[in-house]
Design a protein around this nucleic acid. Structure first.
Length: 591
RNA sequence: GGCGCGGUAGCUCAAUUGGUUAGAGCCCCGGACUGUCGAUCCGGAGGUUGCGGGUUCGAGUCCCGUCCGCGUCGCCA
């Protein structure tokens, strides 16, 4: 090592020691006769002083010219700081190093921004100069936390007899699911590999092979549009177990959640984590990943709507649709008429036609531009159903079940954030269970697997598999942290006959199934143990555990919304020769 | 693909209703300075207002197109 200590290491007890430090010049304060340099590495910041008598005038003059963010090596003696000159903001603030030897290991060209500056530059610039951005303490902390969490996961499963097995990155395209990233084959003209959306099939095969407990930190790829919590390339903690049911997997992850929260955040999590069925989640919160850090539940007032004269409510109810609403405690003051107009526009983004609202007045009466359409008794009933108290805002959507779910879920999320209804430090973890096996594509009328086509139905719903697909529930479970899907898994079908039936329902004919999943169907005939597993979103875990709101903040080299890497300029063009070799030709598409 | 926000000096931002030579702080360059820690003081440089077109006597500002970044809907088994 070039250095004897790190920049975060030295304390009063080291005074008098001769040390060698290496690091980056965070800042420099030049007084002519003496120069102060804050030297930084990932461990901290140490003040280096170049002044007489240790440093000669030439050395001081040279140091005064060193550009910010240069990498230097200094030798000197640890010294006590003068009375009243200590710096409480630094761990090393009680000492300084009096430098007698100084060399530039690599001078920094003028950087577009510095890690220490108070104004964070635009994100495109941060991504282009990621090596500078990653010098920022926030980024370093996030990646350290990521490393801790992954280590915790690996240790936890290793202690429980899981075997880490790597599965291929070059696989084959699957007919269902997200859009694949494809890799052309040079050897097989016109054939393509697909990058894995998850190691799903391989881990099931590993169970058939008798590995019993498998785990992997797996890179996954999905060519879909990005979001604040979504990257095209992301990391899953993927695992699979044999001879298990839902409770076994959930219990295993419960333990991981509690241990991780304890070790990484010092937080105690009560086990078992609460569970809620999918139906209940949709009914109470309108979404399968509800944010349970705060209350505020959806209330169905359709029965009252049916009795009223208000056309919008009555018509919706009579058509078999729903009128559902929420109580916003104290919302009457928070939201003016004008702001309610904004909310109305907001719910339209989710397909709602409008937003009905009532204000609970001081005398307990309901005020609303639509109130005149209601009998007193019906108003009273609505107020009672929502437990409205003076100062509350009551909001309603009258629409299909799906639209009321979407709109009210979005509103609830917005109210939660705008009215600060939850503790920003809270870590709320829970399970959503009993997902439907299938959902229907409204355009084509086709059934889709809600999770994936290998998901086992609940045993009690097995008879309904073909007669009532919509009512058939799956042995599926999602881990939800602070309203974000942090993981999901299922018990798999381990019987080739049931698997074929499910493929049939999904419109995957025998030939396609044989073509794409023949190896799995085949394996299921060779002594397949009952098995199931789960995949945890590592990036999201880190984001949630770090209290961050963007997945790019926990990924060293993330991609932009258009899936490009601003640092390397990927994706890029390739030589014509490369294309020829891969039997590819590019075509221009009209845009 | 749709909707919304943004793009002005290296960086962060400002610029009245469309009106003089587009400003400030930081950074950078030169100078002064032995106790700073956002050092200070003096001086200086730095602009295709993302790009292209249009309206106008006149456009950073208005209009159209386009590129890029962000958020979101669709999408994401």
């Amino acid at each position: 090592m070039l250095r004897s200590h790190t920049c975060g290491q030295l304390r009063k007890s080291d005074i008098g020691t001769e040390v060698t430090l290496c690091g980056w010049v965070e800042s420099k304060r030049d007084h002519g006769g003496a120069v102060f340099i804050d030297l930084r590495d990932r461990y901290g910041l140490t003040q280096v002083v170049l002044g007489p008598p240790e440093a000669n005038p030439e050395l001081i003059a040279e140091a005064s010219k060193v550009p910010a963010e240069s990498v230097i090596l200094i030798k000197g003696k640890v010294a006590d700081r003068l009375e009243g000159k200590t710096n409480d903001k630094l761990e090393t603030g009680d000492i300084e190093v009096r430098c007698h030897h100084y060399e530039i290991l690599n001078a920094c060209t003028t950087p577009p921004f510095t890690p220490g500056q108070s104004d964070l530059p635009g994100e495109d610039l941060r991504l282009k100069y990621r090596f500078l951005d990653l010098r920022r303490s926030e980024m370093q902390e996030a990646l350290v936390r990521r490393s801790q969490i992954i280590k915790k996961m690996r240790d936890y499963f290793a202690e429980r007899d899981f075997i880490d097995v790597e599965t291929p990155i070059l696989g084959r395209s699957t007919p269902e699911g997200a859009r694949d990233y494809l890799v052309p084959s040079r050897v097989h003209a016109g054939h393509f590999y697909a990058l894995p959306q998850s190691p799903q099939l391989y881990k099931q095969i590993l169970m058939v092979a008798g590995f019993d407990r498998y785990v992997q930190v797996a890179k996954c790829f999905r060519d879909e549009d990005l979001r604040a919590d979504r990257q095209p390339e992301f990391t899953q903690l993927d695992l699979e177990m044999s001879f298990v049911d839902c409770d076994d997997i959930i219990g295993m992850i419960d333990g991981l959640v509690a241990e991780t929260a304890k070790e990484v955040l010092g937080k105690d999590i009560q086990l078992p984590l609460p569970r809620m069925t999918y139906d209940e989640a949709m009914r109470r919160f309108g979404h399968d990943a509800p944010d349970l850090r705060f209350d505020m539940e959806i209330v169905d007032v359709t029965p009252v709507a049916k009795k009223t004269e208000f056309r919008v409510f009555r018509g919706t109810a009579d058509a078999g649709n729903f009128v559902r609403g929420m109580r916003v405690p104290g919302g009457a003051k928070q939201y003016s008429r004008r702001q309610i107009d904004v909310l109305t526009e907001f719910v339209k983004e989710f397909g709602a036609k409008g937003l009905a609202w009532f204000r609970v007045e001081d005398d307990g009466s309901l005020f609303s531009p639509i109130a005149k359409n209601f009998d007193e008794a019906h108003l009273a009933e609505i107020k009672e159903l929502l437990a409205g108290t003076p100062g509350d805002l009551l909001v309603f959507l009258a629409d299909t079940w799906e639209t009321t779910c979407k709109g009210l879920y979005a509103l609830r999320k917005r109210f939660g954030a705008e009215m600060k209804l939850y503790d920003a430090d809270a870590l709320n973890c829970s399970w959503i269970t009993e997902f439907p096996m299938f959902d229907k594509d409204e355009e084509t009328g086709n059934w889709h697997a809600m999770h994936h086509p290998f998901t086992a139905p609940l045993a009690e719903d097995l008879p309904k598999l073909e007669s009532d697909p919509a009512g058939c529930r799956a042995q599926a479970y999602d881990l939800v942290i602070n309203g974000s899907e942090a993981g999901g898994g299922t018990i798999r079908i381990h019987d080739s006959e049931i698997q074929s039936k499910v493929f049939g329902l999904l419109g995957i004919d025998e030939k396609t199934a044989e073509d794409r999943f023949g190896f799995l169907l085949n394996a299921l005939r060779f002594g397949a143990p009952p098995h199931g597993g789960i995949a945890l979103g590592v990036d999201r875990w880190v984001m949630l555990f770090a209290g961050l709101e963007n997945i790019r903040e926990v990924i060293a080299f993330p991609k932009t919304q258009k899936a490009s890497d601003l640092m390397t300029d990927a994706p890029g063009e390739v030589d014509a020769a490369q294309l020829t070799e891969l039997h590819l030709k590019t075509v221009k598409t009209k845009s």
